[in-house]
Design a protein around this nucleic acid. Structure first.
Lengths: 252, 252
DNA sequence: CGTGTATTTGATGCATATCAAATATTGTGG
DNA sequence: CCACAATATTTGATATGCATCAAATACACG
C-alpha cells in the first residue's frame, strides 16, 4: 500500500507555510452493525435484556436533555438524530439506519433528540443492565468500542463535509451515501427514494430547505438527476455527482 | 412544521467530563498523566507499555493513510488533528490537549494527520499491546469507551457549530472554549493566547485565513476584544461573545 | 539587516440566507 | 369520493456574508 506526498498547492497559498500532506485514500463505507459484530451467544445476551418497540412517522423517541434510561438499536426504518443550537435552529446530526446504535447517555441524560422517520422498530436496551453486562463481557464491550469509534469517524467525515463543501457538494455527498443503501436505492431503475422532507434535508446539510430545492433544480438542469417526484429521484449521472466533490467551494 | 425545543442551556460548563477537569487543573512538577480519566492502577498498566516522546513545533506525528502502530495521548502541548478533503483543502478536525487521546486506527491505518503545535510531549502506546491489555482489563476498556464516547460528542458539537453558525459565531465559540484552558487564558489579565496561525484557525473554523482576520477586526471594532498582537488577544467583553451565539446566521 | 513568512487590508462577485408568495401534495371530515 | 384545510414544495426577489485574487505591511529568524 502506498500514499503520495505532495507539496502544498503553491497557487492559492501566498502567505501560507509550505507543508507536506498525505493524499486522501479512497473511503470505505462498511457499516459495522452491532448485530454483525456479535457472536450468536453475545446476541442472545443482548436479546435477553432488550425490548422490541415500534414508532410511527414523526413520533419522538426521546428529547435532548431528558433522563436517559435506555440505549437503542434500529431494527428497521430510519431515525433522525438532531440537536438544537442556541439560536433555536435545528441541526440533524445523523440518520440512524438498521443496525445503528443511538441514545448513549451523557451524564445520565440524552445528548440529542430522536424522531422516527417513517415506521420504525427499535430494540430498547436498559442502560444499567447493559453497562453491567459489558463489564462481565469484555468481548461484547470491545464490540461497542468499535461501534462508537466508527460513529466518531462518521462524525468526523461530517465535519469535513460541513467545513469544506458548498451546498451542492454536501447534497451530492449525501445522495451518494444514500445510494449505498438498498433500502433507498434501486440500482436497476437508478431510483433513489428520499425518506426526508426538504426541511430535514436542509437541517442535515446545514442549509435551508429553499436552498436544497434550488440545488436539486440546478442538478436537474445539469443532467445529474431528475425529480420524478419530490421524494423520488432518478440518478442520471452518478459520476457527475462524484465529480462535484472535487471542485472548489466557490463556483462550480 | 419545525418546532423549537425550549430548554435552558446551563452556564458554561467546560465541555469536559468532570473526572477529566478535576485532574486537569492540578499543574505540578509531577509526571504528566497518560490519560487523566484513569485510576492510578490503570495508569501504571498503561505506563508499562507507553513511551514518552517529544516533537518540536511543526513536526508531523503521523500522516493520514499511513500504517498505524500506536495510539497517543498528549502529555503536554497541543496537537493539530486534520484531514484533507478531495478538493485538496485541509480541515482541522480538532486540537488535542493534555490528556486527550488520538491516533486510534481505522482498519490498521490512521484516519487523519497530526502535527505538533509548539513543543509537544506525547505518550506513544503500541496498538497491539494496548488492545491485548484492554481485553484483559474490562475496567480499562470501559474507560476508553467513555473517552471515545466523549470524543464523539465533541465531534457532534462541531457539527452543530459548522452546520448552524456563521464565521463570527464559530470564532466566538472557539475563543470561549479556549478561554476555559488556563494554559491559554490568563483570567486576571483577560489575555488569551492563540497558539495557532490564522490559517490553522481558518482551517479549523471551515473558512479562510483572511476571513478570520476580518472577523477579528470586526470584533475589535465592536469592543469585544483587542488584538495586543496577532497571537495575543485581550478579551474585553466575554458576555458579548456569548451573545453572538444567540444571533441568526445572517446579519447581526 | 535582509529574506522568507505571517498578517492585514482592499476589491469584487458569487453562493446562499431570508422573506414572500405561489403551487402542489397530503390528509381529513362529510 | 369530493371539498377543503393543512402541509410541503417550489419559485421569486433581495441583501449580504464570505471566498477568492491581489497586494501591502508587519514580523521573525538566521
Amino acid at each position: 500500500m502506498r500514499y503520495v506526498l505532495e507539496r502544498e498547492i503553491p497557487a492559492r497559498s501566498s502567505g501560507r507555510p509550505p507543508e507536506l500532506r498525505a493524499l486522501r485514500l479512497e473511503r470505505t463505507n462498511e457499516q459495522p452493525r452491532i448485530a454483525n459484530l456479535l457472536s450468536p451467544g453475545q446476541q442472545s445476551l443482548l436479546q435477553d435484556i432488550a425490548t422490541l418497540i415500534t414508532f410511527r412517522h414523526g413520533e419522538d423517541i426521546f428529547l435532548e436533555g431528558s433522563e436517559a434510561h435506555s440505549v437503542y438499536t434500529v431494527a428497521s426504518g430510519m431515525v433522525r438524530i438532531s440537536r438544537t443550537a442556541e439560536s433555536g435552529r435545528r441541526q440533524v446530526m445523523a440518520f440512524a439506519l438498521p443496525g445503528d446504535l443511538f441514545g448513549v447517555p451523557e451524564q445520565g441524560r440524552y445528548f440529542s433528540s430522536t424522531r422516527a422517520v417513517g415506521e420504525v422498530s427499535l430494540y430498547r436496551i436498559p442502560w444499567l443492565e447493559l453497562s453491567a453486562l459489558l463489564q462481565r463481557e469484555p468481548a461484547l464491550q470491545a464490540s461497542f468500542l468499535v461501534r462508537i469509534a466508527f460513529d466518531l469517524r462518521q462524525a468526523q467525515k461530517r465535519i469535513l463535509v460541513l467545513g469544506q463543501q458548498n451546498v451542492s457538494q454536501r447534497l451530492a455527498t449525501f445522495l451518494l451515501e444514500l445510494m449505498e443503501h438498498e433500502d433507498f436505492y434501486d440500482a436497476d431503475r437508478r431510483q433513489l427514494r428520499l425518506p426526508l422532507s426538504r426541511f430535514d434535508l436542509g437541517d442535515y446539510l446545514g442549509t435551508s430547505a429553499e436552498t436544497v430545492v434550488r440545488v436539486l433544480a440546478r442538478m436537474e438542469k445539469d443532467g445529474l438527476l431528475r425529480r420524478l417526484s419530490s421524494r423520488l429521484l432518478l440518478i442520471a449521472d452518478a459520476g457527475g455527482l462524484s465529480e462535484l466533490l472535487r471542485g472548489r467551494r466557490r463556483n462550480d
